[in-house]
Design a protein around this nucleic acid. Sequence first.
DNA 1: CTAACTGTATTATCACCATAGTACACTAAC
DNA 2: GTTAGTGTACTATGGTGATAATACAGTTAG
Lengths: 130, 130
Amino acid sequence: MIIQFNTRAPVYIQVVDYFKKKMALGELQAGEEMPSRRELATELKINPNTVQKAFKEMEEQQLITTERNRPSRVTTDEHVLKRIRTELVDEAVAVFVESIQELDVTMDELVDKIKRQYGEGNINDRSTGS
Amino acid sequence: MIIQFNTRAPVYIQVVDYFKKKMALGELQAGEEMPSRRELATELKINPNTVQKAFKEMEEQQLITTERNRPSRVTTDEHVLKRIRTELVDEAVAVFVESIQELDVTMDELVDKIKRQYGEGNINDRSTGS
DNA sequence: CTAACTGTATTATCACCATAGTACACTAAC
DNA sequence: GTTAGTGTACTATGGTGATAATACAGTTAG
């Protein structure tokens, strides 16, 4: 379990996003048990209350369900699960475009820079035409 | 003077970014007078202290200079000014890539989504091949 | 000189985020 | 039944961001 707590975004939001990613990638599947709050807090070295807030947020977003005094589980609503990845990507794109809007950046420049940045990780780069 | 206070980012940071954009685009030029704190606060309908914090931040970043009891001015350091745009774009790209990393997004999908989002504004889109 | 404007500083209040510590009710395993 | 582990709830503290309300020193336009 690795989370990089980089940005200024609230930790509990970053925890939510982390689990969204795992669901989007199928690493966490429908109906699967979530780790316990305390366990996760210890592992991530954050406060149990922060984890609780993240889980509460995920419940409100219907990503997980919880029966009292039983470990939370990933939703079995495939409809919800299928949307996650799209939402993650779309929101990232929206934030990105918003931040560079009005800066007169060409798609060429953008693609180039993104590829470079991506390259430092690993990219699934087929095509882009050229 | 229009700023959209969208995100969760601190307002004073958004004000800084707003002026960075104006400098990057040459709408604010080297040595030019900045609006006064009070004037700007009234116009943006935010607190003068928030504006002050933004200006202080800009001073620390050497974007503006201030002689006591005189309006602040855009730096005359062309070296600094030329870097602004690159820094804005690069940081946006970094945040973006970070947020979609590990989501297995192809460049095709990214470019497509970015173009769509961009389209809602105006894009300087020559090429990307296809 | 006076008045209106600069930047700057201080105090106070409120909300949000994160932490720490504690407590309670229930379930599961022994 | 006891124990350890669940989720859940509460109070309190500290930091940051934003607001409000003043206040002071210096500059500038009348």
